[in-house]
Nucleic acid binder design. Structure first.
Lengths: 393, 393
DNA sequence: TTGTAAGCGTTATCAA
DNA sequence: TTGATAACGCTTACAA
């Protein structure tokens, strides 16, 4: 029993009672159950071609032996690797306080854990390194698909991943358009195949048909921006500055465009309602705030594209003796403990980040099972009113 | 073209010019170079048994074809999987603002990327799930080794990992002792083998010898705590409270013990210099601060075990009209943008977290190469004096 | 319904 | 120095 190591006597003592510390294989199960390896494979993979009785017995033996599939063997024989990949391209100094990201990952894992799928995670310095990582993963056959974050307005990644035939889910949206009404869920209708037979049929379809399935999970940044601006408008603010994140990022560009559109709709002066861009860091957030407050006619409200910059902004205002919210209202895009902990507590845009991640991971798993691609809209965020916004002075 | 489906003629058309969209294999290289597959393997793995000329030619062809090793095949044939694992066990709500963690991961990747090793990352709810993850990874042969974070005073993980024979590096230290002088680097002396032949010799040694190699990277929390207390003592503080993190965690316990020891050394009243424990969340940090400030004789200085609680503490003090640092000095353990962004900027204990991660990953890679286990001390943290500490009132 | 055998891309053994 | 050849553990035609 359980012999089978190649060299002469590498298998250690042949104690029938205490099995050696070798992971059991399907062959072990087959011998023990008195069936063929293929029967074991069929039984353990829920494929038919094996009688219920045999299946039950095989399952029992597998359980008893504590068998688990060897991921390398699975991957090698053409199945999936059982891994999906996620690359975070951020310059090291930007990594500081990133509540968004861990939340996202924790949501992703929720979806993955049920499917015995692991997450390969990589932090790199820039987009080029990110692309290199995809190429390497592809060449090494490391991952079955990838989750792409921080989509950009001109993004080389979708094309690259398509050419590599790596199933992809974009978290966020590469499009900049603000006309969200017209193109709401165009592909949503195609999402009819609920459970496309899940096994070889699906896998084959996925690998043979399209260059690479690519789905998108998108958040309606335009609607979110409108809700913020409308809130401030109702409070009487007419001079609002949006301290935006990195210009190349699609969601930044969408928010900037949405701000402009909403200002136009409300008849506000484009010179008084505008965006300035930063790199998301607290330093640049503080610096931008400093400049704004030093101007002859400072804004009465500032919208920050993340929580860290908002907190930095509050500190700058405090340092210059500008009371928040009495003289300056502040809104943070993205909630976090930070926003609740500072004084005053920050009005912020709350979204279900973990849910976003869960949705994305589920979509990627569906794609791997051969489901059609689609665009999925995430739950709309809402504005949590706290103590940093009030009537315009 | 781009055939290659596993039916009849799996090798597809033999077009010498335009290679099919199939990942090239060693066999392809062998055919192209007119040698045997094993020669290719030797050449590409820097093993001898192949002439320099052949080696060069093989390398050239491999380059030309853009060959990359198939990780599954490597893993299956007994080599490493080329993955190391990291599990983060945190209740979801604690994930909020974790500057420490992404920094650590980014340091880890720096070390790994040079070795074509990937990081398998998993977020789970608790310790039990973490252990289950290790078991699964072991059974699936997913990882070659693991990095363990958040060591506890009574920690089941080292024993589990030893029984699974998974090479391990503990990031932090499971020991609680504060007598750091006596047991400084006891095994450091054994760390002589610089480059133990790296290939089969090392690998064999690792898998045959010990149940599982386990190294520890430890930070001298006791010395760090002493530096904080001494700083406050010199400023005249005699009533200092340490708002600690989760009690079970080894570093928490070490800091608590170090505080007590240092207080004794300075002849301070144990009732006036003590620790209270929390779960690291901003809520509990704020709540503890509230209680302390409401007491008949509030402390003149508070040391927080992380940045988030420190910021929360500042907000509570501000809310109660307690000026920081005039009436209350505050120190944060762990620096982050947060500490620089709040008003006043927080005096904090700065450590090179990314460096810590890099060190840990390097050590794990050495272990995988058969190097002896050891205890490594990380660089000592230093106290960055900012605006939240001053003379006792 | 079941068993046999080939193949996935490596590494490793052993003759030539 | 080379080149067959057999593992590794699993999936999957194809044959019984």
């Amino acid at each position: 029993m359980t012999t089978g190591t190649p060299t002469a006597n590498a298998d250690g003592p042949r104690l029938p009672t205490a099995p050696p510390r070798r992971r059991p294989t399907m062959k072990d199960i087959a011998e023990r159950a008195g069936v063929s390896p293929s029967a074991v494979s069929f039984a353990l993979n829920d494929r038919d071609g094996v009688s219920p009785a045999t299946r039950a017995r095989i399952r029992e033996v597998a359980e008893e032996l504590g068998w688990q599939p060897n991921s390398a063997a699975r991957a090698l024989s053409g199945e999936r690797s059982g891994c999906i990949g996620l690359v975070l391209a951020r310059p090291a100094h930007t990594l500081g306080v990133e509540s968004f990201f861990l939340q996202l990952v924790s949501g992703i894992q929720e979806a993955l854990s049920a499917h015995r799928t692991a997450l390969l995670f990589q932090v790199v310095e820039d987009l080029a390194a990110e692309c290199a990582t995809y190429r390497r993963w592809w060449a090494e056959r490391r991952v079955d698909g990838v989750l792409v974050v921080d989509p950009r307005t001109h993004d080389p990644r979708p094309a690259l991943l398509a050419s590599l035939a790596l199933p992809t889910v974009i978290i966020g949206d590469t499009r900049t358009s603000t006309t969200s009404e017209t193109d709401l869920e165009p592909a949503e209708t195609t999402a009819t195949a609920d459970e496309p037979s899940r096994t070889s049929a699906g896998a084959t379809a996925a690998s043979v048909s399209a260059p690479a399935p690519l789905s998108t999970i998108w958040a309606d940044d335009a609607a979110a921006m409108r809700s913020i601006i409308d809130h401030l408008y109702e409070l009487g603010h007419r001079h609002i500055v949006h301290i935006a994140g990195l210009p190349g990022l699609a969601h930044t560009d969408r928010r900037v465009a949405a701000l402009r559109a909403e200002a136009a709709r409300l008849g506000l002066d484009p010179a008084d309602v505008r965006s300035v861009s930063t790199d998301y860091s607290d330093e640049q957030g503080a610096e931008a705030t400093r400049r704004l407050l030093a101007a002859p006619r400072p804004p009465t409200a500032i919208v920050y594209d993340n929580d860290v910059m908002a907190v930095a902004g509050v500190a700058v205002a405090a340092g210059r003796g500008v009371p928040v919210p009495a003289a300056l209202s502040i809104v943070a895009w993205d909630d976090s403990p930070l926003c609740r902990v500072t004084h005053p507590r920050l009005t912020s845009l709350v979204r279900d980040t973990a849910g976003f991640g869960r949705l994305a991971a589920q979509e990627l798993l569906s794609l791997l099972d051969g489901a059609p691609t689609r665009r999925l809209q995430a739950e709309l965020p809402h504005l949590e009113l706290r103590d940093s916004t009030t009537h315009a002075p």
